[in-house]
Design a protein around this nucleic acid. Sequence first.
DNA 1: TTATATTTGTTCTATCTTATAGAACAAATA
DNA 2: TATTTGTTCTATAAGATAGAACAAATATAA
Lengths: 111, 111
Amino acid sequence: MDLLTRTEEIILLSVHELRDSAYGVTIRDLAADLTGRRWSIGAIYVPLDRLTRNGFLKSHSGDPTHQRGGRRKRLYRLTAKGVTALKETKELQDKLWAAIPGVSALRPRPV
Amino acid sequence: MDLLTRTEEIILLSVHELRDSAYGVTIRDLAADLTGRRWSIGAIYVPLDRLTRNGFLKSHSGDPTHQRGGRRKRLYRLTAKGVTALKETKELQDKLWAAIPGVSALRPRPV
DNA sequence: TTATATTTGTTCTATCTTATAGAACAAATA
DNA sequence: TATTTGTTCTATAAGATAGAACAAATATAA
């Protein structure tokens, strides 16, 4: 079982969600949108690299777009291993929280 | 918003679940049970320390137990801040996964 | 009744892995 | 050659992991 970090989970989910337009910039924007935080360039590309090296993602170079300027994109896609890791992560989370009462009922117990 | 790491989430949930018997050893055992992995001593106490320093947990020394041997326990409890962080973490996760079809439907899309 | 053994639990520290930030660089079209 | 879009690279901070060392409790032996 490969347990993902939270960053890795967010990035893999973003890649999944973005389908054929998953590359550095769009992944960064979606992650920012989902989490309500700013993500630096490095906070996206470093994990993307590692996830690719470790077989959770694969990447290929996109075609030129005939838009004004701009370097070619590196597009990402989940591998079967990436999908499995996401599933297992979700299952663990569900298990973790299954025993806990509704989130809204969570309160610190007085000493 | 304080976004917890996965380790922190698991530890805080374990502390919550264990109520008045949350200390290093029981937390370690519950984390192992929940995740199906072995947790080293340091993998528990180092985050416990940090979570306490950062105000997510508070701790106090337990009474001697009149069982055979054994050092006094350091018991942990969630603070209001810890509860809030757990709630926000859960909400983020729910949001992250809300857009995704059932986990079982997740498959890598062919290239 | 004092010393030593045994048990349970925590503290400490070293090292490895991840996260984070942004400068530098590259490649595309205007 | 300038401008735009995007990626690579690198340095540093933060978190994860492992387990040796240490501490404090009761049991047992002399």
